[in-house]
């Protein structure tokens, strides 16, 4: 009787999970990570007359704007074959990165109620955001396919490489979302800053025009930045998939490594502050 310890078997309520246990807890909730963003997407156009038509209508209208501005008014092909397709691929894939990171920046701050009500690994929230953006990207991929067919480019067996490119892209986006989530939880001002960073980054990532052309020896810093910026090369990979545009293979390999590094760093950076999320 004297050896009985009533407190045996108790553990701290906020015990830090091992990396393995944390990942297992995340995996157990994988259905949530899809159901939550699917819910948001389902309700996105529910107040409109055309409803779900807008999922595809929105990206198609975006292409329409580019068609009018660049095709009709400016008449500029900028030395690129099928500039409309080139631009469409660039804009939508870049949007996937910027929305993932921007969404990540509000993943923690806008779900305080959920976090106070239920206990779950907080990384689930940025992951849900990124999955939601990938679902949205699905409609944009359809719009890209429409443009590819309409412009005579057509679709090829290179599409088989699309899941791989998307996987690399997702590593980068998820890592970025994790970093943005922690930064803006600690410093809300980040949510104002991040959109400007991405607007700036857009002009040096080869979204609207081939940045490589300007990154010559006269602009050594730009050249270095273009080599190291994974977005430039991920966009190139997408353009290879859809229009057989040339890919700088060493730079592409480097971007795969960079994206993986961003994911690993981002995850660790996010989880290190796990206890702080959701406090009043």
């Amino acid at each position: 009787m004297s050896t009985f310890d009533p407190a045996a078997g108790l553990r701290p309520t906020d015990a830090t999970l091992s990396a393995r246990a944390y990942l297992q807890a995340l995996w157990r909730r994988r259905d949530f990570a899809v159901a939550m963003p699917a819910e948001t997407i389902r309700s996105r156009h529910q107040n409109t007359f055309l409803g779900n038509v807008w999922h595809l209508g929105n990206p198609l209208l975006t292409v329409g704007v580019y068609l009018i501005v660049f095709g009709g008014l400016l008449g500029a092909d900028r030395g690129i074959d099928n500039y409309l397709l080139w631009l469409t691929v660039g804009v939508f894939t870049y949007r996937l990165t910027s929305s993932s990171v921007l969404g990540g920046s509000t993943a923690i701050t806008s779900n305080q109620g959920l976090m106070r009500a239920l206990k779950f690994p907080r990384a689930l929230l940025p992951i849900s955001v990124v999955i939601g953006e990938i679902l949205t990207f699905g409609f944009e991929l359809a719009a890209i396919a429409v443009v590819a067919v309409a412009t005579g480019q057509g679709l090829s067996s290179r599409l088989l490489a699309l899941p791989f490119v998307l996987a690399v892209h997702t590593m980068l986006n998820l890592g970025g979302a994790f970093i943005a989530a922690r930064l803006s939880d600690g410093f809300r001002d980040m949510q104002q800053i991040i959109p400007f960073l991405f607007r700036l980054l857009q002009f040096v990532s080869g979204v609207m025009y081939p940045i490589g052309r300007y990154a010559d020896s006269d602009h050594a810093w730009l050249h270095r930045f273009v080599v190291w910026n994974p977005i430039v090369h991920i966009l190139e990979m997408y353009r290879w998939v859809f229009m057989a545009a040339p890919v700088d293979v060493p730079a592409a390999l480097l971007s795969i490594g960079t994206s993986a590094a961003v994911l690993v760093f981002g995850f660790r950076f996010f989880v290190a502050a796990e206890h702080r999320y959701g406090r009043p």
Binding site: G9, L10, T13, D14, M115, R116, A117, L118
Partner: peptide, 22 residues
């Protein structure tokens, strides 16, 4: 869901909180 400043809270199993604020 809220960290303590000092001291310790030990539990036998994960508690479920039900609040109106959540």
């Amino acid at each position: 869901v809220l960290p303590v400043t000092s001291g310790e809270i030990l539990v036998a199993d994960e508690p479920k909180l039900m609040g109106v604020g959540g």
